[in-house]
Write a protein that binds this DNA or RNA. Sequence first.
DNA 1: CGGCTCCTTGAGGACAGTCAATCGGGGTGG
DNA 2: CCACCCCGATTGACTGTCCTCAAGGAGCCG
Lengths: 217, 217
Amino acid sequence: MTIHSREFRSAAILGTPSDIRIDSLFDGCAGQPATLFAAGSEIYAQGEKAGDLYLIEFGAVRVYRLLADGRRQISSFHLAGEVFGFEAGGTHHFFAEAIGATGIRVIRAGHGADRSRELLPLVLQGLVKAQEHLLVLGRQQAAERVAAFLLDMAARQGDLEEFDLPMSRGDVADYLGLTIETVSRVFSRMKDKGIVRLPSLRRVRILKWDTLRAMSE
Amino acid sequence: MTIHSREFRSAAILGTPSDIRIDSLFDGCAGQPATLFAAGSEIYAQGEKAGDLYLIEFGAVRVYRLLADGRRQISSFHLAGEVFGFEAGGTHHFFAEAIGATGIRVIRAGHGADRSRELLPLVLQGLVKAQEHLLVLGRQQAAERVAAFLLDMAARQGDLEEFDLPMSRGDVADYLGLTIETVSRVFSRMKDKGIVRLPSLRRVRILKWDTLRAMSE
DNA sequence: CGGCTCCTTGAGGACAGTCAATCGGGGTGG
DNA sequence: CCACCCCGATTGACTGTCCTCAAGGAGCCG
């Protein structure tokens, strides 16, 4: 069900949220066309052979894992300018899907050169983020989780007052370890209290930053 | 309150649970004495300058983070033979403490040589483990979490029928995002059902592996 | 043997989940 | 351009799992 468009030419990279430089990773693949993934299409699956990395040019990606009965945990979202696809042991332990229409540049593995030096800081940052998210899932209540999530999304889009939520309520729920209904209720409550405005389903404007920060502890 | 014993000579490394070779990391510090950390003593703290790595020779370590009101999430336990201390941005984002009396060999940073190549597989494995733990915290119930935890502890001690739990019930609770009482109740229920035996507070014998595996899904 | 800490067990309550009905908005077709 | 449709989101009522509070028990040290 994956749609690949070799025709699609990349938009400008919107800038990396971190200060880690990734430019050098693309020495060997400059000028390569990006691939377009349609909404919901699979980028890689658990069990597949891993090695390549993926740079998002526009759109967003969810990386997740499933339990046997279908319960899903999204371990991370990735936005424009971010790199994902790191794996251990040469095998993917997770699934990756485009959330909306997403342009991705593939960084092929084994270009000869050893990329450890450039990759290590990126992977370390991913490790810290995952471990910080453990605190959210293990010890925070629903409202605290949503507050932390909104602040993270805002920070990754330049701390603008208003920003996009590329993902559905269901995706947010599966990222925060909650249900759709609980996420929806927390959003509504935040709106009622004047903490946020919700101009549309996929858009948020933060009105009370300090309140949100206090909520996320 | 930290006790460092420069006199202490290391016991044999008990073997790495993974198949990743770490020998080469110690080229520059072979023969260095290990340091003894007393039970509960701090190895490093959040906010401290990072860079060194730590190899456990015996004992166990908890790595955790705190919320403002004292809620604690243990992001990982580390046993004999394992390396920890990876950080991003040169600063520790977590606390590390010895659980019981623990012998640790410090791998000093900046020995000149670039360690990226050896480190990357270790960090990648840590990332996968953290992300897998997200699924446990986000989507599994209490009994499933405990089952997954026991299987993990068993696997890291050679899949022996009977093995040590170096940490307290409180540590287990803070690792699994539960309370002491819930962990205790799940243990008791598993004992009642003949799934495990608990020869002592810090020791477990798994009787029904398949049941545990089915529980952890 | 006493006292301490950690663990266990019980009773009751709260937060989030489940089930179900309704709302709303973006897209399509008339 | 408007009406309809459909999927996602919202809201409400109720349930259940886990947390909180509290008391009692077990192991381990001096």
